[in-house]
Every structure is written in C-alpha cells, then in structure tokens.
C-alpha cells in the first residue's frame, strides 16, 4: 500500500499557463488532485505562507521572482525549510543543476519531460506510490 497521501496539497509554479496545465494534468493522471497554481516566485511564496503544502513543483525562469529565488526563500524560512521542492526547467547546464542542488532543491526535472519521469521524481522525493 502506498504511504503517499494522494490528496496532499501541491503547489505548482510556472509563468507559462501551458506548462501549469500540463503539470496539473499529469499530476491528475498520477492520482494527485489537490493542486494549486502560482505564476511566479513571489505569488508562490505568499501561498506557501498562507497554506500548508506538502510539495512545491516550480519552474526556474520566471519574473519577477525566479524559481531559484523562491527556493532560496523557502530554505531560509524556518516553517518552510524542509518542504520538498522539485525544480522543473529547461535550464539543463551543469552549473544550473549544481547551483540548484547547492540551494537545496530536492530534485530536478529537465523540460520536456513525460509522466513517467515526473512519477519517478515524485517517488524519489515523496516515496513510492
């Protein structure tokens, strides 16, 4: 039996509505239905402070606050610092990945990706489901 709460609140963050919709639908396909959205880091940070989420899936390249800045803010916040945080981005250079890892990202997915990759990374962060 899965130890993962499929009803856990998840926050997805991306400035492209297309990508938000893709992630939301792929999460739905995987069984996660409790998904909220934000279109940049600062909006996401506000939502994270207003409501308890169990996972953040964020794009990197957003204005005005990027995913990296959001990650830094989350890790610096005593209440949020242990929140699982997955970065989904087209930034696939080694230095980007290392920078994200050093900032405390839980996992990293390169666009374009598929449902199987998303499931693998979610399992790595949350446990098998």
């Amino acid at each position: 039996m899965s130890s993962v709460d499929m009803g856990m609140p998840i926050l997805i963050v991306d400035d492209y509505k297309t990508m938000l919709r893709i992630i939301r639908n792929l999460l739905k396909q995987l069984g996660f239905n409790n998904v909220d959205e934000a279109t940049d880091g600062s909006a996401a940070l506000q939502k994270l402070r207003d409501k308890e989420y169990h996972l953040v899936i964020s794009d990197w390249n957003m204005e005005p606050m990027s995913g990296m800045q959001l990650l830094t803010e989350v890790r610096a916040d005593m209440k949020l610092k242990d929140l699982p945080f997955i970065m989904i981005t087209a930034e696939s250079k080694t230095e980007n990945v290392i920078a994200a890892k050093e900032a405390g990202v839980s996992n990293y997915i390169v666009k374009p990706f598929n449902a199987a990759t998303l499931k693998t990374k979610l399992s790595a962060v949350l446990g098998n489901f």
Partner: peptide, 14 residues
C-alpha cells in the same frame, strides 16, 4: 493517449 498528448504539448513551453 491523453497523457501522451499532454506530454507532447510541452513543445509550446519549449
């Protein structure tokens, strides 16, 4: 098939 279509639509973001 629907999942496959969603995955493919990632082209627009890229």
């Amino acid at each position: 098939a629907v999942t496959s279509i969603f995955e493919a639509c990632g082209f627009q973001d890229i």
